[in-house]
């Protein structure tokens, strides 16, 4: 069987599982919505002032929503022993992990991206920045899913894994947050944004190449613990 075939199988399985756990699927978008809705209540309803913060608020909320869902990435696989089977596959486990990360992006990063224009309007983000908001979220959440996978793998067997995951992964999310927000701000202000977007893409590529390796190494420890 070709590797691409296995990759599709993994993706198919993950999406099927996500669909069968669809109650969990709603959590990140819901969290995204709630955090964004709380901001005007806590800060100001003044649209002009909200507009200046919109890029940052949207990105922080999307990042937290993503983080919330990472804890479950490997948990059930670890509990039922599928993780051991994954590591003993005849194909490189990195490929399977990559499939899982892509599935995670499809069910969290992508929905967050698709709903972001709606929330951006609530925060009066300038319409010119809208496409860039979506583009930066789409690219940035790829990195979040991949890098977050490392943290999820490191904490999968642990009690209180969720809290620890946040501590481990937050510092690594800083560059994505900075450049993601910067793209949207630059676009809103009519400034050039392609450099920032390119950096965001570069980070996604770096994560694509290296994160699965670290994730598999971490999973090997998790099945031993």
């Amino acid at each position: 069987m070709k590797l691409s075939r296995l990759f599709t199988r993994v993706l198919q399985r993950e999406l099927q599982l996500a669909y069968r756990r669809r109650a969990d699927l709603a959590n990140p978008p819901l969290f995204f919505l709630i955090v964004v809705a709380l901001f005007p209540l806590g800060v100001t309803p003044d649209l002009e002032r909200l507009a200046t913060m919109a890029a940052g608020v949207l990105w922080v909320a999307a990042l937290l929503a993503n983080l919330l869902s990472l804890d479950l990435l490997f948990r059930s696989d670890h509990e039922d022993g599928s993780l051991e089977q994954l590591l003993l596959a005849s194909s490189p486990p990195t490929l399977i992990v990559l499939g899982k990360a892509l599935a995670h992006w499809l069910v969290t990063g992508l929905p967050l991206t698709l709903m972001s224009p709606l929330l951006a309007m609530m925060l009066a983000l300038s319409p010119a920045a809208m496409p860039l908001l979506m583009l930066s979220l789409a690219l940035g959440t790829v990195t979040l899913s991949l890098v977050g996978g490392i943290g999820a793998a490191l904490t999968v067997g642990l009690r209180q894994g969720g809290l620890l995951l946040t501590l481990l992964i937050m510092p690594l999310f800083v560059p994505v947050l900075i450049f993601g927000t910067a793209v949207v701000q630059a676009a809103g202000a009519g400034l050039p944004w392609s450099g920032q977007l390119a950096l965001l893409a570069a980070m996604a590529v770096l994560a694509l190449v290296s994160a699965p390796l670290a994730t598999v190494a971490a999973l090997r420890i998790a099945v031993e613990e």
């Binding site: 490392i150 481990l168 690594l172 800083v174 560059p175 900075i178 910067a182 290296s210 670290a214 420890i221």
Partner: peptide, 20 residues
């Protein structure tokens, strides 16, 4: 593993924070 991931990220973090 975490330290190795961190050390790869540290220059990126520093660069991004400085740029920001």
């Amino acid at each position: 593993i975490l330290a190795l991931v961190g050390v790869v990220n540290l220059p990126i973090i520093k660069f991004s924070v400085e740029w920001w």
